[in-house]
């Protein structure tokens, strides 16, 4: 269970939110409303105030790098620092089943990063985060660059993660995706998180 209490920075919040074990919360809202900043604050990537706990452990009680291994975040734009895909994975033995689920060939770790399509990049970034076996998952527009078939595969992976008890926090512009993942839908407006009013759609 991911518990967020009074999380805020100069640009958003305060936000209170609890994502139960196995639950998916989908956040919608206009661009620039603070959705991405909110996710970054949860993983402590920007200066922020407020409390975040995962299964009772406070993030301040551990170094930030360990917190980010427990709460995995996949940003909208994936970053790469080596030439080959495989160099970005910490536990290659975890990789084959993940690649298969995401519809990527087993030789994809040999690929050059510079030649990846945006969809391949993004699926590999999701696989890279899942290799660390995080206990909660934050995703910023996980399927914006994917075709319907790949989207379905990513959603299948997220469903499996939730079935194993992992809380998922999702930023998405895809209303269908929130429905398919039976997510609780919230909306971010000017840095404040609120219930979705169906009439506002």
């Amino acid at each position: 269970m991911l518990v967020i209490e009074g999380l805020r920075s100069d640009l958003f919040g305060p936000v209170d939110l609890t994502v139960a074990a196995g639950e998916c919360v989908a956040i919608e809202g206009p661009s620039g409303s603070g959705k991405t900043l909110f996710l970054r604050a949860v993983v402590d990537l920007d200066p922020n105030r407020g409390g975040v706990r995962l299964d009772g452990s406070r993030r301040e009680a551990m170094p930030a790098w360990r917190w980010r291994r427990l709460v995995g975040m996949v940003p909208a734009e994936s970053g790469w620092w080596a030439d080959r895909v495989g160099a970005h994975f910490e536990r290659p033995e975890m990789l084959p089943p993940l690649l298969e689920t995401l519809g990527l060939p087993p030789e994809s770790p040999e690929w050059e990063v510079a030649r990846l399509s945006s969809g391949e990049r993004h699926r590999l970034a999701i696989a890279r985060a899942l290799c660390l076996e995080p206990r909660a998952l934050l995703l910023d527009e996980p399927t914006a660059s994917l075709d319907p078939a790949a989207t379905e595969r990513v959603e299948g992976l997220l469903r499996r993660f939730m079935a194993a008890g992992g809380p998922v926090l999702l930023v998405t512009h895809d209303i269908g995706q929130a429905r398919r993942l039976s997510a609780r839908r919230l909306v971010m407006r000017r840095g404040r998180l609120g219930e979705l009013r169906e009439a506002a759609e």
């Binding site: 990537l45 790098w65 980010r68 995995g72 975040m73 970053g79 790469w80 620092w81 890279r128």
Partner: peptide, 22 residues
């Protein structure tokens, strides 16, 4: 220039010193 790549490493649980290594 490589902010996204450095932050990708931070998000993967690297310490700041390891993340900026390259």
């Amino acid at each position: 220039r490589d902010r996204v790549a450095v932050e990708a490493r931070l998000l993967l649980g690297h310490t700041r010193f390891r993340a900026v290594q390259p």
